[in-house]
Amino acid sequence: MSACRPRRTGRRRIALFAAGAAAASLTLSACGDGASGGSAQTKFVQGKGGVATVPEGDRQPAPELSARTTTGTNKLNIADYKGKVVVLNVWGSYCGPCIAEAPNFAAVAQETKTKGVQFVGINTRDEKAQAVNFEEQHKVPYPSLFDPTGKLLLRFPKGSLNPQAIPSTIAIDRHGRIAARSLGPLDKSGLRKMIAPLIAEK
């Protein structure tokens, strides 16, 4: 899969990338292919379809993730959803695979909202107007944190299932712990399989 490149939109975009370069310790490839592996150190298991999972006893707490949303002035804090399964999707309006998976996420988000599941996007490497246009065009029914320079993505602890591509999807269990990850786009079936075990947990 060819890498997606953010559109150049002038000096403001360049300034955003320059700020993001300060966070260069995170190698976030544009448009991931879902490749990943497990290790004894990270204690996660690579499953079929590119979804990695962590046994319940080995899960690490999710980092503090709060920021203004793409469409609002108030801050959204992921910790406010503790007690729910939280599905975090890292996306950008310039990313072809993100466009392809958007209707899948919208559909599954609607299907699972009565089952204690909350979807939240993390928009990165975008300008706000482009992010808002994407959400309106694809009828995204859930909020997205606005993270143009990728600072939120750096908060994931070492050795955890951290986002490493655009798109990436991270599932957080009801206790606020990182439970599963997919690097690359997901169809509806893959997304359902990823979160179904977490919905069943108490």
Rank of each mutant, 00 (worst) to 15 (best):
Y81I: 09
A100L: 14
P61K: 08
C98V: 04
S93E: 06
G83H: 08
A106N: 04
G96P: 05
K84A: 13
T124Q: 06
N133C: 10
R125L: 13
E56P: 03
A129S: 13
Q60S: 11
Q110Y: 09
L65Y: 03
R125S: 10
K75L: 11
Y94R: 09
D126C: 07
V87W: 00
Y81D: 09
R125I: 10
K48H: 13
F119R: 01
E136V: 13
T124W: 01
E64Y: 12
K128S: 10
E101H: 05
V85R: 01
T69M: 08
N89M: 03
V45Q: 13
G121W: 02
T114K: 14
K113L: 12
T124D: 04
A107Y: 03
E64F: 12
T69N: 06
Q118N: 11
A129G: 10
Y94I: 09
I78Q: 00
P97I: 04
A79T: 13
V117M: 04
V120Q: 00
L65C: 03
S66G: 11
D126T: 04
P61L: 06
E56T: 13
E111S: 11
C98S: 05
Q60L: 15
A100I: 10
A79K: 15
N104T: 08
I99S: 04
F119A: 01
P103T: 04
G47V: 00
N89S: 09
E56G: 09
E101Y: 04
Q60I: 08
K84S: 15
G49A: 07
V51W: 01
T73M: 12
A102M: 00
E64V: 15
A52L: 07
Q130T: 12
K84F: 12
P63C: 07
T69H: 05
K128R: 15
I122V: 12
A62G: 06
D126F: 02
K115W: 11
T73F: 12
V90T: 04
V90Q: 00
E56N: 10
E136R: 14
N74D: 15
F119V: 03
